[in-house]
Design a protein around this nucleic acid. Structure first.
Length: 259
DNA sequence: ATGTCCTTACCTTAAGGA
């Protein structure tokens, strides 16, 4: 089962690039972030025509997540527990049944800039809520994948210029500690389990020729429950997508599970 | 580099978010 995560930075803007990548990469499951669309405005028919089941959790203008899957999606839930007043669409879950059943959680973690400030407070509070949800799901002792745009640079080697990110919400010590606490619940960073090389990025800013200078950061991750980690066969970043026509500022990252 | 892109609304131009 090939499970990808892709922050598309707007479904309307990516209505050509996303199907082109789906056709080339042939993923079974794709978690999308920043669809920037309400559910009714998402062009689901484009993806249904390609054989995908489509589940969205959108909002107007900003954020929004979705799951596309060639396998049936069961027990779909939307939103991250822990704050009934939170109206930002950043979390969706579904169970995908292949050879094995896998719970897939698609997430778009808050950016948090500027830090400090209310947006950073929201980021850390959101990460604490995620910690609780992950701990709850891990008790099931099943294959679970938590994938998406984490907006966290885990280590210095995950940035081309780590010194440029000091003081940024994506690289603040508290952000990295909260990410570490998630991992320390017993999760595996799938990409790092397969590839320890520095210079592996999933995002290059549109500004200042970041792509041309390879000034990137690795912020799109798959964290795996122990039972999912047992099934891990591959993990890759589709870097070349960033050089395509009208690209997102993120590229797809995917894993292959024996499931 | 102060460098770009996406979305919306006060809509052909600016603001907010990233």
């Amino acid at each position: 089962m090939k499970i990808a995560t892709f922050n598309i930075n707007g479904i309307k803007a990516r209505i050509e690039a996303l199907p082109a990548w789906l056709e080339a990469a042939q993923p079974d499951v794709v978690c999308l972030q920043e669809i920037k669309s309400v559910d009714e405005g998402f062009p689901r028919e484009v993806f249904e025509a390609m054989g995908f089941n489509v589940e969205t959790h959108g909002q107007k203008s900003f954020n929004g997540v979705a799951i596309l899957s060639k396998l049936p999606l069961e027990d779909v839930t939307r939103g991250l527990a822990g704050d009934d007043t939170d109206e930002q669409a950043r979390w969706i879950e579904a169970t995908v049944v292949g050879k094995r059943a896998v719970r897939v959680c698609g997430l778009y973690l808050p950016n948090g800039n500027p830090a400090p400030g209310p947006k950073y407070d929201y980021k850390l509070a959101w990460m604490a809520r995620m910690q609780a949800r992950v701990a709850e799901l891990l008790r099931l002792e099943e294959p679970i994948v938590f994938c998406g745009d984490y907006n966290v640079i885990p280590q210095a080697e995950d940035a081309a210029k780590p010194e440029a990110w000091v003081g940024d919400a994506l690289y603040m010590p508290q952000s990295r500690a909260a990410f570490r606490q998630l991992v320390n619940l017993g999760l595996t960073d799938a990409f790092r389990a397969r590839n320890q090389a520095p210079g592996q990025y999933s995002f290059w800013d549109y500004q200042a020729g970041a792509w041309e200078r390879n000034n990137g950061i690795r912020i799109d991750h798959h964290l795996l429950s122990p039972q999912a980690a047992d099934l891990l066969q591959d993990a890759q970043i589709d870097k070349q997508v960033r050089a395509g026509e009208k690209p997102s500022d993120h590229v797809p990252v995917w894993i292959e599970l024996d499931a």
